[in-house]
Amino acid sequence: MTTTVTARNRAKAQRTDAILVAAAELFGARGYSSVSLEDIGAAVGISGPAVYRHFAGKQALLGALLIGVSEDLVAGGTAVVQGAADERTRMAMLVDFHVDFALRNADVIRVQDRDLAHLTEESRSDVRRLQRAYVGLWIDALSALVAADRDELRLRVQACFGLLNSTPHSTSAALRTRADTSRVLAAMAIAALTAAHG
């Protein structure tokens, strides 16, 4: 009996993950308002009403998507910070972590940029809280390398995110591989973060 329940739970979790991936792709391509639960269900081989077995509705699905990604960023960033040997390595590892995120999650970044307003007030508050925590990790790391107050450090970090998160809106076709793209973005990010005062 336990094996059956575990297998059923695992299958449900896999379907939930597939729905989130499909929602990110569809919301990213067409926008939240232009996608129905039927569209999302069809993308994973189920009916629209069957999506309700996993999420209370389309808005709840959007919330789960953006909150989940924000939680992953905070958890991953925290692990990077705790695992770095020194200040410069910590900053470089955070940049590499976010570059990898940006290149793997272009759809989610588009959704975040365009559809955050469609979240419930509670979900939007959760996303903002998690974003502040993630930015805080970067500010703390950068403060060891740049002599500036927190307002300036925050400006540098947010400008760096603007650079890295713009990648879904451009193409790296001119570069040969994703590794090349990652190298260029990481170098630009470090240069922007640590640029000397004018």
Rank of each mutant, 00 (worst) to 15 (best):
A22L: 03
C160A: 13
T2P: 04
Y52N: 13
L119Q: 00
S143Q: 11
S123M: 10
A133T: 14
R104H: 12
L163N: 03
L66R: 00
L37E: 03
L66W: 00
T4R: 12
A173L: 12
A195Y: 08
A179I: 12
V157K: 04
A13I: 11
R178C: 09
L185N: 06
R154D: 02
D151M: 15
Q14G: 12
R53G: 12
L37S: 02
A75I: 14
Y134N: 11
A24R: 03
D72S: 15
G136F: 06
V81W: 07
R15H: 03
L62P: 00
I67H: 01
E87A: 15
E25H: 09
I190M: 13
A85T: 11
V21P: 03
E71I: 15
D180P: 08
V108M: 01
R156H: 07
F97D: 04
G83W: 08
E121K: 15
G41I: 00
V127G: 03
V80M: 06
R110L: 04
A7P: 12
A75V: 14
T6A: 13
T6S: 08
P49S: 12
K58F: 00
Q59I: 05
A179H: 13
V157L: 07
D151T: 15
D140K: 14
V135G: 02
L94T: 04
G77K: 09
S47V: 14
Y32E: 01
A13L: 09
F97P: 03
A141G: 02
G48P: 04
V135N: 02
E38I: 14
R154T: 13
R30L: 05
T6W: 07
M188R: 15
T194P: 10
L73F: 04
A7C: 09
L103T: 08
N165G: 04
S182A: 15
R183I: 00
T120E: 02
A133N: 10
D151S: 15
T4S: 07
V108T: 09
F27N: 02
T194E: 08
L163S: 10
A92N: 06
A195L: 13
W138C: 12
F161E: 00
D149E: 14
S47K: 14
V44A: 02
A42Q: 07
R88L: 05
D17E: 15
A92P: 03
V127T: 05
A117C: 08
A148W: 05
L94W: 06
D86V: 06
S70Q: 08
E71M: 10
L65P: 00
F101P: 11
A92K: 09
A43C: 02
A187D: 06
T120N: 06
